[in-house]
Design a protein around this nucleic acid. Structure first.
Lengths: 242, 242
DNA sequence: ACCTGAACACCGTTCAAGT
DNA sequence: ACCTGAACACCGTTCAAGT
């Protein structure tokens, strides 16, 4: 026979599988990824994948980590103790400011996610053991503590930035409405008369909301940082628990 | 035969199905909901469900809407033009302040979601045509415009609050790490030495981060509101697009 | 080591058949 | 109108068999 059970050189590799899975996720969504469909795209039969990954979910985790790896973390290098106000150039003692780094990082993060929105639900499950996800968490925490935030606060900043950025990617506001003028009866929803228009301006609306929210978040954190510096640590720690 | 194809009184109703589906989602997660499993819990066969819902997804949407319906919206009644600072009592002209309403609403929203975390991915898809989801969006937008926010800004506030609240429910920070001391090698992740401890303090850590983030967000928005009131609308509209 | 087809225990959904 | 069992076209995963 022509078909061999095992060719001289492997047909598959982890990289080829992740690559093909990523394309499938981007083009047709998470639900479209079945082991049979993915294997077919790679020219092999379904069970072959299990020679390279333990489960289908491990493949999706790898796709998610590849997206995390695209997030720029270089802005955290050199963040040091210093002011949070002023420009994005540097702090008072030469270190880069935490606020500018957080701003740039948030944009890079959001851009990576909006290039691959369908994988975001997998990313949202947390870094777990995914290397790129962990590097990201490590970089944020390291930079915030270097900037003078107490460890407990640095953890919270990493968490709340994650909520906002992943939330903006997974819970699109504008895309959540339907593009149907008759869908939102003014008698039921007096203020939703224009809501059907949101669907077609999705990108624009969500980008503006992200920018407004990010600015508010950083402004608010800067206020807490100032209070911290002014020697009123309680004011900067409104929450219970360590 | 004893078994009839159709009993005198219907065995099923939309409400009974939604109720049972909600229990299944809460106890075993979204993936555990199959039409056969759900039907078995209700004492009927799988296809029976299709007499009451068009698809399985429509059932999950109904479960999600039931959770949305639990979010308190009463704090938006009576929000009017006025200051955003001060106490949570009222604005300068007798209307309740938008900031206090947003704060209370965010907590009520988060509480509803944390009671039913497994359904959040369905909620995150947006209100679509779900009545309770739409009432929620309507109430926020109506209250923010009543408080004096320009419509475009009111839309953004609804969106960014949604990002943050749904993000905190779907993208738990602490729960994203594994409870395994050996998982995070200090050589790879110099600042993640205590990360494995997050898993067991999940609730505490996520609650503190939510509180810190919400306060920062509202502080930042208050700054924008003040700038708006001071007659510098550009300062309050840092984002492009209407 | 790495791929195959067959098989197992599932899915969501349709549909003719019953009352 | 509302429930049933049978059927269709799928799933993820295991496994013995091939080279």
């Amino acid at each position: 026979m022509w078909r061999m059970a095992r060719p001289r050189k492997p047909l598959l590799s982890r990289d080829r599988i992740v690559e093909a899975a990523g394309v499938l996720v981007d083009e047709e969504g998470l639900e479209a990824v079945s082991t049979r469909r993915l294997a077919a795209a790679l020219g092999v039969s379904g069970p072959s994948l299990y020679n390279h990954f333990r489960t289908k979910d491990a493949i999706l985790e790898a796709v998610a980590d590849a997206v995390s790896a695209k997030v720029d973390l270089s802005m955290f290098a050199g963040v040091a103790d210093g002011g949070s106000g002023g420009g994005s150039g540097g702090g008072s003692d030469g270190g880069k400011d935490w606020r500018g780094a957080l701003y740039d990082w948030a944009h890079s993060y959001r851009e990576a996610l909006s290039d691959h929105p369908n994988i975001v639900p997998v990313l949202a499950r947390g870094p777990g053991r995914r290397p790129a996800g962990l590097r990201l968490a490590d970089a944020v925490f390291g930079a915030m503590t270097a900037a003078g935030w107490p460890p407990a606060q640095a953890t919270r900043i990493g968490a709340l930035m994650r909520y906002f950025i992943l939330g903006s990617a997974v819970a699109s506001f504008a895309g959540g409405f339907v593009d149907d003028e008759t869908a939102y009866d003014p008698a039921d929803y007096p203020h939703l008369g224009q809501a059907h228009l949101l669907a077609e301006r999705r990108r624009e609306v969500d980008e503006a909301a992200f920018e407004t929210g990010l600015t508010a978040l950083l402004d608010g954190l800067a206020l807490q940082y100032e209070a911290l510096r002014a020697g009123a640590p309680e004011a900067a720690r409104p929450a219970p628990g360590c």
